[in-house]
Write a protein that binds this DNA or RNA. Structure first.
Lengths: 187, 187
DNA sequence: AGCTTTTGGCTAACGGAATTAGCCTAACAT
DNA sequence: ATGTTAGGCTAATTCCGTTAGCCAAAAGCT
C-alpha cells in the first residue's frame, strides 16, 4: 500500500474545503477520509478526532479571514477602510460558510492556543478600521463589538438564507456600511 | 406499562428545555426520551424524527421571541421601543440559547408552514420599532435587516462566549442601542 | 358491561458514524 | 543492511437515529 503523503495541514485543509462544499454539519470523518484517499481510521494519525479537526479548521479560517480583512484595510482609512473590511469579511463568510461555521463556539484553551492568536489578528484588523474615526478610548471596545456583531450577524444570516423577503441583499449590506459610517462619525 | 401522557407539544417543550440546558448539539433522542420518562423509540409516536423535533423547537422559540419583543414594544416608541425590543430579544437568546439555535438554518417549507407565521410575527415586532423613526419606504427593509443582524450577531456571539476581553457586555449592548438610535434618527 | 379500534408504550434489530486496538510495511536514519 | 518510526490497514466497539412489529391501555360503540 503506497503512502498517501498526508499530514495534519493537508487533512485540515481538505476538511475545510469539504465543509464549505457540503456544510459543516455534514462533514464526516468517513467522507473526509474518502476525499483524501485513505480509510477513516488513518485520519486519526493526523488529527485527534472530530473536535480537534474542527479546531484546526477554525484556526485556518480565522487566519484567512484576518488576512483578507487585513489586506483590504491596507492603504485605506475612514469610510473606505470600513467598507473594504466589511465587504472582505462578508465575502469570506459567504464563500467559505463551512470554514466559518467551524469558528463559532470554539474557545481558546489558553493564551498560547493558536486559536487565540488568529482571533486576535482578526480583531486587530477591525481595530485598525476604527483608528480612522475619532472614538473615545473607552468606546473603542464597544464599537469593536458592534462591528463584529454586525458583520457576524449579517454574514451568518445571509449564509443561512435568513433573509427571505424581497430587497437585494448586496444593497442592504451597502446601506448598512453607510449607516455605520455615519454613526461612527457622529459618535 | 402505564402511559406517560405525552403529546407532540410536551415532547417539543421538553426538547426545547433540554436544548437550553445541554446545548442543541448535545440534544439527543435518547436523552430526551429519558427526560420525559419513556424509551427512545416511543418519541417517534409524537415527532417525526430529529429534524421534525428541531422544527418544532424553532417554531416554539420564534413564537416566544415574538411574544417577548411584541410585549416589550407595546406602549413605547422611538428610542424607548428600540431599547426595549433589543433588550427583550437579547434576554431571550441568552436565557434560551438552545431553543434559539434551533431557529438558525431552518427554512419554512411553504407559506403555510407555522415556521413562516411565527417568523413573520417576530419580524413584525421589529418593524413596529421602525415606525417610530422616519425612514424612507425603500429603506425599511434595509433597516430591518440591520436590526436583525445586530441583535442576532450580538446575542449569538455573547451566548457563544465570543466576547473575550475586558469591557462589560451589558454596557456594550447599551452603547449599541444608543448608536443605532442615533443612526436611525439621522438617516 | 362487553367488544372494537386507535393510540402510545415496548423490545429487537439495522445502519451509519466516531473512535480504539492492534497489525504490518514503507520510509528513513544509521 | 538493518532497526525504528510513522502512516497506512482491518476488525471491533460503542453510541445514535430510525424502523418494524408486538401488546396493552384508553376511548368509543352497542
Amino acid at each position: 500500500m503506497p503512502r498517501a503523503g498526508l499530514d495534519r495541514a493537508a487533512v485540515v485543509t481538505a476538511g475545510a474545503a469539504l465543509a464549505d462544499e457540503v456544510g459543516l454539519d455534514r462533514l464526516t470523518m468517513g467522507l473526509l477520509a474518502e476525499r483524501v484517499g485513505v480509510r477513516t481510521p488513518s485520519l486519526y494519525k493526523h488529527v485527534g478526532g472530530q473536535e480537534d479537526l474542527n479546531r484546526g479548521i477554525a484556526v485556518l479560517a480565522l487566519g484567512e479571514a484576518a488576512d483578507a480583512v487585513g489586506v483590504a484595510v491596507q492603504g485605506r482609512a475612514g469610510r473606505d477602510a470600513l467598507a473594504a473590511a466589511a465587504r472582505a469579511f462578508r465575502a469570506f463568510v459567504v464563500e467559505h460558510p463551512g470554514r466559518y461555521a467551524a469558528t463559532i463556539g470554539v474557545e481558546p484553551s489558553g493564551p498560547d492556543d493558536p486559536l487565540a492568536a488568529e482571533g486576535r489578528r482578526l480583531l486587530d484588523a477591525f481595530t485598525a478600521v476604527l483608528r480612522g474615526y475619532e472614538i473615545a478610548g473607552s468606546d473603542v471596545d464597544h464599537a469593536l463589538r458592534m462591528l463584529r456583531s454586525l458583520c457576524h450577524g449579517f454574514a451568518t444570516l445571509q449564509s443561512a438564507n435568513g433573509f427571505q423577503w424581497s430587497a437585494d441583499v448586496d444593497e442592504s449590506f451597502e446601506w448598512l456600511i453607510a449607516f455605520t459610517d455615519r454613526g461612527l462619525r457622529a459618535g
